[in-house]
Design a protein around this nucleic acid. Structure first.
Length: 423
DNA sequence: TCTGGGGTCCTAGGACCC
DNA sequence: TCTGGGGTCCTAGGACCC
């Protein structure tokens, strides 16, 4: 059996740990740049606030119902997530951290219904007491069934907070209830196509001929069908597979139409990217840059361009990557547009330890300097030390930086933000 | 005025090789 | 009337996940 443990309305729940006065009240969390809604409390969902709703279009509703809103604070969520995963690891033999708020567990060593139930209850109780977040636990024979069970628990057994698919009857009942578009692995496009063919529930889906599924949804859809039938095709991945690409991109707080600022933003993304590569012990064999205007501004001329550069000697050195990026940037930047976003992607990633040497290339970068930069930034906070091209003096705070007007304190990661308790 | 960021997998088609 | 068989690599596009 597999379990899926999923934090209820994760980002909202993270904020409520430290501001419990918002328990029972409508709360939402906004995307970067306070652009749109990416998390909602149950109370906010009940008021009709949709996932992805643009913030500026729901301001009236927010005032009307006194909805609490936060800018997203990934430092906080990451920290809470680590606490959660540490506790889950103590309770089950094997864990796959699937996302910031979800993990799969392998329960194959646990046999009776009673023991499964007790694992679910213990995890819930400990996370609530020791971290302060509510979670739901779904249990089934495959990862896809565990996902389905989790959804069932959330909608139909929320107080208990778990659901176990340990009989054929319970499986059928859950699959008849589950809309086909809510199956893990079936997204909007396939859901539309399935419904056009009269396949509305997960139960309809498992009773659809295999050849139809393969023809219309490839082998990926076929695997999903097998999983729903109780045949496990997707294994637990305790160690995440090596990354193939790594991307850093941000929308600007407002649009920018001067080259120097766009370039500075890009170089800052390079610095972030290079640090992420070094953190994971990876080097990039190629670098892609892209820039784009804001597609929502219909009054603006639209533009998108990208450039892919092979790197002769795979690297994670900030200065080298910056030099490459600067050399290529001019080929994609065009004057006369209002830019909204710039991004950088590292591709052809290989481990630092096994990277191929280059025969005709002697420009060995100073990686020791990078190590020192990383250790300073790890100790004193990001960008404590940086490359001058990222901006100095007054240039550090600029239009391209994120808008986060409703940011919460970093309660768990910044000594200055630790909550004060008065006794 | 204002609409997120970061990933993976699969297939078809076009190019190449012997 | 008739035109082989067996492969790989790369890219773009489309689907999906959180």
């Amino acid at each position: 059996m597999f379990a899926l443990i999923d934090v209820n309305n994760c980002y909202v729940s993270c904020h409520r740990i430290f501001e419990p006065q918002y328990e029972g009240r409508p709360v939402i969390v906004l995307s970067n740049n306070d652009g749109c809604v990416i998390a909602r409390s149950e109370e906010a969902k009940a008021l009709g606030i949709a996932m992805g709703a643009p913030f500026h279009l729901i301001k009236e509703l927010i005032d009307q119902h006194n909805i609490k809103y936060y800018s997203s604070n990934y430092t906080l969520y990451g920290s809470i997530s680590r606490r959660i995963m540490a506790i889950i690891r103590e309770e089950v033999p094997a864990v796959e951290v699937y996302s910031i708020d979800e993990s799969f567990a392998d329960l194959s060593s646990i046999e009776t219904h009673y023991s499964l139930e007790s694992v679910a209850k213990t995890i819930r109780r400990r996370l609530f007491q020791e971290v302060g977040v509510p979670v739901c636990v779904g249990i089934g024979k495959t990862k896809t069934l565990a996902k389905a069970a989790n959804r069932y628990a959330k909608k139909n057994n929320r107080n208990a907070g778990y659901w176990i698919l340990d009989s054929d009857e319970k499986e059928s009942q859950c699959l008849k209830w589950l809309e086909v578009g809510d199956v893990w692995g079936i997204g909007g496009q396939y859901a539309k196509k399935l419904k056009q063919n009269g396949i509305n529930t997960a139960y309809d889906f498992i009773n659809t001929p295999e050849n139809w599924i393969i023809k219309n949804m490839t082998v990926v859809g076929y695997r999903t069908q097998k999983e729903l039938k109780g045949v496990s095709c997707i294994e637990l991945e305790e160690a995440p597979p090596a990354k193939k690409n790594m991307c850093v991109s941000r929308s600007f707080g407002q649009f920018i139409n001067n080259r120097a600022d766009v370039e500075t933003a890009m170089l800052n993304h390079i610095a972030t990217l290079a640090a992420k590569l070094r953190r994971d012990g990876l080097t990039a064999g190629a670098l892609q840059l892209f820039i784009q205007t804001n597609p929502f501004r219909k009054q603006d001329k639209q533009y998108y361009n990208s450039a892919l550069t092979q790197i002769p000697l795979a690297t994670n050195n900030t200065i080298m990557l910056m030099n490459i990026a600067k050399a290529v940037f001019g080929s994609i930047y065009e004057e006369g547009y209002n830019y909204k976003k710039v991004g950088v992607i590292a591709l052809d990633l290989v481990s630092e330890k096994v990277k191929q040497a280059a025969l005709f290339y002697n420009d060995i970068p100073n990686d020791k300097a990078m190590k020192i930069m990383d250790s300073i930034n790890n100790k004193f906070g990001r960008d404590s030390i940086r490359i001058a091209a990222q901006g100095v003096g007054k240039k550090i705070r600029k239009d391209w930086q994120l808008k986060r007007e409703h940011i919460s304190p970093n309660f768990t990661t910044d000594i200055n933000d630790i909550p004060v308790i008065k006794i």
